[in-house]
């Protein structure tokens, strides 16, 4: 079975101005959404510190009643939401000035037990505020470090114009995914951060496959404009790019559907990341390399021309 026309010759790079405008709008929009005053990310207690309680009720939980009770108990700022099922509830409270997390948790449980003595405490988490600060710092640092390492590797294997293209495509993806999280208000916790880094890896992976084909075609097709050759390469790898994204998406959607609430943030981030990643490796990465005037000469070492069919050895 085949779904993609093997002879397809869609002019992806011809559309690069439209793609550039589209990507710029998405990026700028995401960055604006990420400004704390505008919307900002809904950080989980991993980052903010505070108390998280997961409670199991016998029947469907009465959220308005829970909120009212908490407000009466001076916890009006608590975030109350269903967690997976109607009878499971998650409550999140930011750290209180001068109040130990344990005291906070105890007070909340006491308030809720007064409403329904059968409520079962399924999970508690206390995170000190300093842990959260460190995590935010470490997370940003990890992201930056991963980018630098990946860029260095691509520069080593390809060339700086391609490295820039790949990094732009790669920055593009997590930023827009973050924008999505800011827009929807989904909780941004540690597992979402892990998903962000997985997206970085995945997106680069996708881009590299296209770049590899471009390099191969620059060697094989000696005539022809770079734009033409790049277009051919993107078209040739199109089937693979979409198939892979589709199959990975199947796994991620299985996680989204069956993985339960704990994996929801992680799976949502990956879903968005994969869609954007596929788009960026088709439209953004090569287009940027082309805009930087990447040519065959950039990829083919002048002397060490290799014969066809020979395998590139690893550096």
């Amino acid at each position: 079975m085949e779904l993609f026309n093997a002879k397809s010759n869609l002019n992806f790079l011809g559309q690069r101005r439209i793609a550039a405008v589209f990507s710029t709008i998405l990026m700028v929009g995401s960055l604006i959404l990420l400004i704390p005053g505008v919307r900002g990310l809904n950080f989980g207690i991993d980052f903010t510190g505070g108390v998280l309680l997961e409670l199991g009720y016998q029947g469907p939980a009465d959220l308005p009643d829970i909120r009212a009770r908490l407000a009466a108990g001076n916890y009006g700022d608590a975030q109350v939401q269903n967690f997976g099922t109607a009878s499971d509830v998650m409550i999140r409270v930011l750290p209180r000035e001068g109040l130990d997390n344990k005291v906070v948790a105890g007070q909340i449980i006491a308030v809720l037990k007064a409403g329904d003595p059968t409520v079962e405490l399924r999970r508690t988490e206390f995170v000190g505020p300093q842990v959260g600060e460190e995590l935010t710092e470490q997370g940003a640092l990890a992201m930056l470090f991963a980018m630098i390492m990946i860029m260095a590797y691509i520069m080593l294997r390809f060339q700086w114009k391609f490295a820039l293209g790949a990094i732009a495509a790669t920055l593009h993806d997590p930023v827009i995914t973050l924008g999505f999280f800011a827009l929807t208000g989904l909780t941004f916790d540690l597992s979402v951060l892990a998903a962000m880094l997985a997206i970085v890896g995945y997106s680069v992976n996708d881009t590299i496959v296209v770049f590899d084909r471009i390099r191969e075609n620059f060697r094989k097709i000696r005539r022809g404009e770079p734009e033409e050759i790049m277009n051919i390469s993107v078209n040739e790898t199109l089937g693979r790019t979409i198939m892979t994204s589709f199959l990975t998406m199947l796994m991620v959607i299985a996680m989204l559907l069956f993985g339960g609430e704990t994996l929801r943030g992680f799976a949502s981030a990956l879903t968005i990341g994969i869609v954007i990643g596929t788009y960026s490796s088709i439209f953004v990465a090569s287009a940027l390399a082309l805009s930087l005037k990447a040519t065959a000469a950039d990829l083919i070492p002048p002397k060490a021309e290799k014969g066809e069919g020979e395998v590139d050895s690893m550096p």
Partner: peptide, 30 residues
Amino acid sequence: YDKVFSTIADANITTLIAGIVLFAFGSGPI
């Protein structure tokens, strides 16, 4: 099989870099 070798290697090594960074910086669940 031969022609995709370098592609697969490149693609996986970059993902591996992301994985190693995660390992180095992350704690617990990460």
